[in-house]
């Protein structure tokens, strides 16, 4: 499991490879907060290579979304597979995040 960060235009894109769970959520949080501290405002997390997310992983997404909004920025999500879509619907987090089918659509939406 790992996270890679790159900049596409004005958007910081984070790829989550593997699981987003209690054992690695802090790593994701810190990487995104570091970019936020540098002044970045637009963030996209791409889940195309993600297996599953546990409650602590979901919690980190909620926490990051709040912190980014507090700084006047936006966090959007893309490429949730059927399992992740089900998970977001179960927890009603699909109402909290703007979620796109593809990375391209998400990038265009900013």
């Amino acid at each position: 499991m790992s996270f890679s960060i790159k900049k596409q235009g004005e958007v910081v894109v984070v790829d989550v490879e593997g699981q987003l769970i209690v054992g690695n959520r802090q790593e994701l949080k810190q990487k995104v907060l570091d970019e936020l501290e540098k002044g970045e405002k637009k963030f996209l997390i791409d889940f195309s290579q993600t297996g599953y997310i546990d409650s602590s992983g979901l919690g980190v997404l909620v926490s990051l979304s709040k912190k980014i909004r507090e700084q006047g920025g936006e966090l959007r999500l893309a490429n949730l597979n059927d399992d992740l879509q089900t998970l977001f619907e179960l927890t009603k987090l699909d109402t909290l995040f703007q979620i796109s089918d593809t990375r391209e659509r998400a990038l265009e939406s900013f």
């Binding site: 546990d54 409650s55 602590s56 979901l58 919690g59 909620v62 926490s63 927890t91 009603k92 909290l96």
Partner: peptide, 16 residues
Amino acid sequence: TTPENVEKEEGRGLFL
């Protein structure tokens, strides 16, 4: 999933 809880960072484990 209630409006007052959905934005909380914790509290989803047992629910899931």
